[in-house]
């Protein structure tokens, strides 16, 4: 996906303050967030919408509600699993990993029968 623009100037809300750029990694690649930006916003600004794939089906997921209710945006942050990307501010050198598909041994067994 193409990078999404940050809305630097707004007719009513005005210009965004100059904020420090902060490096972080997502699935091993380095990106820049702005200071006090959530993981979901920083990744979107870098053109990344897929925050995880569904544990069972493997289909892609992004943020849905953006305010912590739906749990769709959960990622792993510095080895802590199930952290909501929409409520967590990026910190210097944060290591973020997307959610991965899990093996479903029972389902595979049933399918093979």
């Amino acid at each position: 996906m193409k990078k999404m623009t940050r809305l630097l100037d707004h007719p009513i809300l005005g210009k965004l303050d100059d904020r420090k750029a902060i490096p972080f990694t997502f699935d091993g690649k380095t990106y820049e967030a702005l200071e006090n930006e959530t993981i979901a916003a920083a990744l979107l600004a870098n053109g990344i919408r897929t925050l995880r794939i569904h544990e069972e089906s493997g289909t892609p997921r992004g943020f849905y509600c953006n305010i912590g209710h739906c749990m769709e945006c959960r990622v792993t942050v510095n080895d802590q699993a199930n952290v909501r990307a929409c409520l967590t501010v990026v910190e210097q050198c944060m290591v973020i990993a997307s959610g991965k598909q899990h093996p479903n041994i029972v389902k595979r067994m049933v399918e093979q029968q």
């Binding site: 623009t5 809305l7 630097l8 809300l13 979901a40 916003a41 979107l44 992004g62 849905y64 509600c65």
Partner: peptide
């Protein structure tokens, strides 16, 4: 569930609070 589908409130927060398109 596709990335890019969001609640209307999510779009509001991303636009006015986080200021990302």
């Amino acid at each position: 569930t596709l990335p890019g589908v969001m609640s209307i409130g999510a779009a509001q927060v991303m636009t006015n609070v986080h200021r990302v398109q």
